[in-house]
Structure formats: C-alpha cells, structure tokens
C-alpha cells in the first residue's frame, strides 16, 4: 500500500512538472513576436540597429519571466517536492 502511495506521489509530481512547462509556449510566442518586430525595424532603419537590438534583448529578458516561473515550479516539483511529500506521508502514517 505504501509503495502505491509513493508511486502516486512521484507520478503526480512528474505530471505536474510536465504540465507546468506548458507555460513555455507563452514566452516562445512573445519573444518571437518581439524579434520579428525588431527585424522589421532594423530593415526599415538600419542606422539604429544597436539601439533596437539592446531594447529587444531587454524586452526578451522581461518577456521570459513567466516561462522562468514555470521552470522554477517544474524544477521544485521534480527535485524538491517528492522527498517532502513522501516525508509528510510517512509522518502521517507514523
């Protein structure tokens, strides 16, 4: 019975981590948009390439944040949460 419970915990953590990383779609689309617009801007005005590039990098770094939140959640679910949940379970059983 304990094995089954631990198995459910591990499987749940892995599933949760996978689901959390769905959030990676958002920053991908957002950064793609940002870079596309930056390319258009550089094509129109090649003389302001450096300013556009630095602004784009800055914007990309900010747009990445939601994806990184998801990454942190997935990381915690994979490496930290299983041990804690199993400890809680064992403490509850006694």
């Amino acid at each position: 019975m304990l094995e089954l419970a631990i198995g459910i915990i591990l499987g749940g953590c892995a599933l949760g981590a996978g689901c959390a990383m769905i959030a990676g779609i958002g920053p991908g689309i957002g950064e793609g948009n940002a870079v596309a617009k930056a390319c258009e801007a550089i094509g129109r005005q090649p003389e302001c390439k450096s300013a556009v590039t630095s602004t784009m990098l800055m914007g990309c770094a900010v747009a990445e944040t939601t994806g990184l939140y998801a990454f942190v959640i997935a990381f915690l679910l994979l490496f930290v949460a299983p041990g804690r949940f199993v400890n809680i379970l064992i403490n509850a059983i006694g």
């Binding site: 770094a61 900010v62 990445e64 944040t65 990184l68 939140y69 990454f71 942190v72 990381f75």
Partner: peptide, 16 residues
C-alpha cells in the same frame, strides 16, 4: 520577486 526569480532561473536553467 520577479527580479530575483528571473536572474536565478536563467542561470539555473542553463546549468540544468
């Protein structure tokens, strides 16, 4: 919070 998480998660994801 977002500043700390952004920096930390970027470096951590690279090493992972």
């Amino acid at each position: 919070v977002s500043m700390a998480f952004r920096h930390y998660a970027n470096i951590l994801s690279g090493s992972v």
